[in-house]
């Protein structure tokens, strides 16, 4: 099958996946309670009239399947509905457009950290198995996996921003710098596209601590994954063949072992990317990063169905896309894999 056909087929398959996800999230989210009560909060008590009016205004009294039908109908017209009170009732799609690029930017940079640092560390660890570098890397990986993001974020800020003024405390840009013209919504990329290199460096400086913080767990996971798949690959016969050919150790590892060992690591990275997108709320909170994680938590807190659904569908979309990317990468990494 051709790459193009394969991608088209996978994207068509997305439609039933998204419908399925919308079904699950719709009914699950409608179980968390009455949004009218959540919106009014303290003011709920003694205000049945207001609650009734709000329920009527938002069609909350229709039976759930009918509400779901309305939702699907809107979805078919690319209308994700409107946010709740928490976002001032603007269209969900606008809120997603505002917040998602910020998170995507963090996730991409975080993944960058994880790959650029995690994979070499994993290789180093495997090559020096049971020696000092391996012990150091393994301890670091364990620490990385088990460190609470919340705590890590504050520590990073304290040392790298407050004590030694290397990076800014938080935010995406200083308020004195104008955001670059919006193309992707990711400031670093947009600054590059617009050729504003000053803005690019400022935006990058702002993104480094939060993306490192976000990517650390993935970094640690990739390190461990890379170590174990590298160790496994190094026991394979073809590695012995490569050595018997007289290749240097560096060539044996970087040419023959690495590409084989990358396959499982790539799978993990693909799955982890979805996790970075959906699990950024802590990082976003600590670093005052206006991302989709904070939006989703706020939406859940105010029982804002449309926003919760929009968030879930978007994450699923990107999750599937990142896995598609991984599948395509496979074919390049391993000729035994075929589309289909």
């Amino acid at each position: 099958m051709k790459l193009r056909d394969y991608i088209i087929r996978r994207i068509l398959l997305l439609i039933p996946v998204l419908i399925g996800i919308s079904f699950i999230t719709f009914f699950l989210s409608h179980m968390i309670g009455d949004p009218a009560a959540a919106w009014l909060g303290e003011k709920t008590i003694g205000q049945e009239e207001a609650v009734k009016a709000i329920r009527a205004a938002h069609h909350l009294d229709d039976p759930l399947p009918i509400q779901y039908f309305y939702y699907l109908n809107d979805l078919a017209h690319f209308d994700l509905g409107r946010t709740g009170r928490n976002e001032g009732g603007r269209p969900v799609i606008e809120a997603l457009k505002d917040y998602f690029p910020a998170t995507l930017e963090l996730a991409i940079l975080g993944m960058g950290f994880a790959i650029i640092i995690g994979i070499p560390l994993g290789i180093l660890s495997a090559v020096f198995k049971d020696k000092v570098p391996d012990h150091i890397v393994r301890v670091l990986a364990l620490v990385g996996v088990s460190m609470p993001i919340f705590w890590l974020g504050l520590i990073l800020k304290y040392w790298f921003s407050f004590k030694f003024d290397i990076f800014p405390l938080d935010g995406r840009l200083p308020y004195t710098v104008l955001a670059p013209p919006k193309v992707t919504g990711m400031y670093t990329f947009d600054a590059l596209l617009a050729g504003q290199f000053d803005t690019f460096f400022v935006a990058l400086r702002h993104a480094i601590l939060p993306s490192f913080c976000l990517g650390l767990i993935t970094l640690a996971i990739l390190t461990r994954m890379m170590r174990s798949s590298m160790l496994e690959t190094l026991t394979q016969d073809f590695i012995r063949t490569a050595r018997a050919k007289g290749l240097s150790e560096r060539k044996v590892i970087l040419k023959h072992a690495l590409r084989n060992a990358l396959t499982p690591t790539t799978t993990v990275a693909g799955i982890a990317f979805g996790g970075l997108l959906s699990g950024a709320v802590m990082t976003e909170t600590i670093f005052a990063w206006p991302g989709i994680g904070r939006f989703s938590v706020k939406a859940i807190g105010s029982t804002d169905f449309a926003s919760i659904m929009g968030f879930a569908l978007l994450i699923v979309l990107f999750y599937v896309l990142s896995n598609l990317l991984v599948d395509i990468l496979y074919v390049y990494l391993d000729p035994r894999v075929k589309y289909g």
């Binding site: 504050l154 800020k157 407050f162 405390l169 938080d170 935010g171 600590i286 005052a288």
Partner: peptide, 20 residues
């Protein structure tokens, strides 16, 4: 005037202490 949304209280304290 710049009004920044910084939800975490520890982060706000750091910002105060850094003069931001």
């Amino acid at each position: 005037v710049v009004v920044r949304t910084v939800p975490d209280v520890n982060s706000r304290v750091l910002a105060f202490d850094k003069g931001e």
